[in-house]
Design a binder for these strands. Structure first.
Length: 479
RNA sequence: GGCCCCAUCGUCUAACGGUUAGGACGCAGGGUUUUCAUCCCUGAAAUCGGAGUUCGAUUCUCCGUGGGGUCACCA
């Protein structure tokens, strides 16, 4: 029935690190467009020349791709609405602003930053909401002359005095704001650049964006955008404001101060991109059948922005860790080997990876955990002698080590089966306490109390290394 | 403070106005096991408060309370 082509967008600003919340929002825009065979557009909003960070655009593009997402139109791809970088679209914004002035929907303002901040200060002192006082509105013809003489100016939106401004939010229903609480937003800055508000509206319109899923923090500026659409006589997109991520302590918007927020850092920490995406999918949304593991494809099929919970959500790292573990265990071994490669320490024996990895795969929460679980395979170990004799005496342990070494040294075929047979026979023959003996051996050979299965570990470690470690521990005890 | 948004276990959520309020993570206990982990089983754990509407409110309405967002020539 609705034949409209869905077009969504994400509009990152190259002012710093790309946040996990941005990826989560991007994912929803992406999925919604894909579900309806529409287009997902990426647009760079670099209208703040002051906060521009060199190289940030490249980083943003690369992290989006690293998460396994992509865009149909935008930087590197082009499209029917080129360019997709706002700093390359400058001339149109000024024309739009001028048009609004002409239509009486906006006005020139030459108030100095000093005057504005003094005004704000005074308003705050008087417990008044900070708002532009329209000092320039009544002197437009005078100001026009000053501008012609070269004076700097901005263009402000003339917000109606008092009428309700409302829009229908996909997630929250109708939201209405009294226009009296909306400030006369600057649309065109004195450097000739548009502000965000003018730029998004103009670009979303030109790029024929039909649906805007964006962070909840934008709700309060949406009335400005609605007013702009009205002033231009354009049809606004359908908005959906997505709840923000809260800090793990549940207090306040997720922030750098309280932990990691950058999208790249989670990848660097050894989380799989598909696990992160899955986590973002189910944070504030569930499929009909309540399952919590979904592929991107399934998500695209089942996702509907209307079903997003309007409640802010705590970024629960424990849940993320669980999902990550699930995904690691789902990975075919060859694929896991490939993925874990960047996380291997320099001294890791690459040729033994295919033997070591299966022993620790079930123990990995993140890919980065590989190092802490495997060091005893390729680094020398240090042991607390107390650990060896914890459930026995030095004499008995020395004896156990010597006999074990003896038995193992006679094995020609160094396989799990052979090792296990010899050691179990010895243990039974001598009636050694099982737990004590196996734990002692584990500590002697790995230096740790928690390791992969003992016999497998010994096989991978190799006969020579095992024997020498048994010898070293035995020597250490006898002195 | 103004404006706006939100409210079910600790966390994320499910429940045509009628359920012993369900699931998942986490937590506790147990099983498998030579340790840890994986895996399996069991358990504790929630409808913010008050008025309405209704035969009946987690669900609808209002008022509180609490939390969050936002108030730039930043996005």
């Amino acid at each position: 029935m609705n034949t409209q082509i869905i077009r969504t967008r994400m509009a990152p600003s190259p002012t710093g690190e790309y946040h996990v919340g941005h990826i989560a929002t991007l994912l929803k825009n992406y999925a919604f467009a894909k579900k309806h065979d529409g287009a997902f557009i990426l647009r760079i909003e670099d209208t703040d020349q002051f906060r521009l960070v060199p190289g940030a655009v490249e980083k943003i593009l690369s992290v989006i791709k690293a998460y396994g997402l992509d865009w149909d139109e935008g930087p590197e791809k082009g499209g029917p609405h080129e360019p997709y970088v706002q700093s390359q679209r400058l001339s149109r914004y000024k024309d739009y602003a001028l048009k609004l002035v002409e239509d009486g929907a906006a006005y020139y303002c030459t108030c100095s930053p000093d005057r504005l901040s003094a005004l704000r200060e005074q308003q705050q002192k008087d417990k008044q909401p900070p708002k532009y006082d329209r000092h320039c509105v009544s002197k437009q013809s005078e100001i026009k002359k000053q501008i012609d003489a070269g004076e700097e100016y901005v263009i402000r939106l003339l917000v109606p005095d008092d009428e309700p401004v409302s829009f229908d939010d996909m997630i929250r229903g109708e939201i209405t704001t009294p226009s009296a609480s909306v400030d006369d937003q600057v649309l065109l800055k004195s450097d000739g650049f548009p502000t965000y508000h003018l730029a998004v509206v103009a670009d979303d319109h030109e790029m024929e964006i039909t649906h805007v899923l964006r962070g909840e923090e934008w709700i309060s500026s949406t009335p400005k955008h609605v007013l702009l659409y009205r002033a231009f006589g354009w049809e606004p997109p359908v908005y959906g404001h997505i709840p923000v991520f809260l800090n793990p302590d549940g207090k306040g918007k997720m922030s750098k101060r309280k932990g990691t927020v950058s999208a790249q850092s989670f990848l660097d920490a050894g989380y799989l991109p598909e696990a992160l995406l899955n986590f973002f999918m189910i944070l504030g949304w569930t499929p009909q059948d309540q399952r919590e593991m979904l592929t991107l494809h399934e998500y695209i099929q089942e996702f509907d922005p209307k079903d997003i919970s309007p409640k802010s959500v705590v970024f629960d790292v424990k849940k993320l860790e669980w999902i990550n573990g699930q995904y690691i265990r789902l990975l075919p071994s060859a694929e896991l080997e490939r993925r874990i490669h960047p996380f291997l320490p320099d001294d890791f024996p690459n040729d033994a990876l295919h033997k070591i990895l299966p022993l620790v795969a079930d123990r990995l929460v993140t890919l980065r955990d590989i190092e802490e679980h495997t060091t005893f395979f390729y680094r020398s170990i240090t042991i607390d002698p107390q650990l060896l004799t914890k459930k026995s005496t030095a004499t008995e342990v020395t004896n156990q080590l010597a006999e074990t070494k003896d038995v193992l040294s006679r094995i020609d075929d160094w396989t799990v089966e052979e090792i296990e047979r010899h050691i179990r026979d010895l243990q039974e023959e001598r009636s050694w306490h099982k737990r004590q003996y196996f734990m002692m051996l584990r500590v002697a050979i790995t230096g740790k109390t928690a390791t992969p299965p003992l016999f497998e570990t010994m096989e991978v470690l190799g006969k020579e290394k095992v024997l020498s470690r048994l010898l070293i521990q035995s020597d250490a005890l006898s002195v």
